[in-house]
Amino acid sequence: MEMMNWLPEHSAALQDLRARGLSYSEIADTINATFNTAYTRNAALSRAQRMGLVGLERLEPSLPGHLDPPKPSLPELPRIGRLREGRAELTPDLLRGPKIFTETVEMPQLRCAAVVPRHLSLLDLKPGDCRYPYGGDSDGETMTFCGHPCRSGSSYCTPHFHLSRDPEATARPVLSAAWLQAIGAG
């Protein structure tokens, strides 16, 4: 992809043509014909985004399949001081990002197991030791494991077994009586 720098007169023409309601492909074609450049529709659109012009509405809807050759020059219209009345100016509040990322969010109370882990490495774990992991959340942080004796039929000790289960989900039967009757097992 070839990088093209927009000259100030090209940017001014883009702003003027966008204010007149031209599409970005028409803008690129007009600027190319006027200044002997090779801007694409996407280049015009990207430059308009950087200039803050993208939110402007077109004066007329575009017609699908309408591909007239570009007109070399448009009649001069008086320059408009502002692009459109009521256009919001970019303020630091708008540039910071959505509020959801800037506000403090109250975290829910997390459940925790009533056990002090032994923090064994994977190599130190023996058969029958709890494999509930601790750490390893960030790059380079070592992961350790609980290491207490496992509950029978589980890889976790009893406190970690209960911590890893949803109390409401385990209260519901996995297969209902209606399901068992439907498959002929009930």
Rank of each mutant, 00 (worst) to 15 (best):
L14N: 00
P108V: 13
R151L: 14
T158F: 09
Q15R: 15
A178C: 06
G81W: 02
P167V: 13
D166I: 05
E57Y: 01
P159L: 08
R58M: 02
G153W: 02
C157Y: 02
E89A: 15
E89S: 13
S73Y: 07
R172G: 00
I27N: 03
T104R: 15
M51L: 14
L56I: 06
N5A: 11
H66M: 11
P117G: 06
L22A: 07
H119A: 08
Q49H: 11
Y24W: 09
L17M: 12
T142S: 11
G81D: 05
P78N: 12
D93Y: 09
A171S: 10
E89N: 09
M143E: 11
L45T: 08
H119C: 05
A28K: 01
R79V: 07
M1A: 12
R82A: 08
A169T: 04
R41E: 08
N36P: 00
M107F: 10
L94M: 10
P8W: 09
Y39P: 01
S155K: 13
S155I: 13
P133M: 10
A169D: 01
E26H: 08
T91I: 07
C157R: 02
S23L: 09
H160D: 01
R118V: 02
A177I: 10
W179N: 12
H160R: 04
E103Y: 09
G52Y: 02
Y132C: 06
L110H: 06
K126T: 08
P70V: 05
A38I: 06
S121T: 15
A171L: 11
S121K: 08
R84P: 00
T34C: 06
F35W: 05
D16M: 06
A44T: 01
A185K: 10
A48D: 00
G21V: 04
D29P: 00
P61S: 14
L95A: 12
T91H: 03
C130P: 00
A114C: 04
R84K: 14
N32Q: 05
N32I: 04
R151F: 08
S152F: 05
L17W: 02
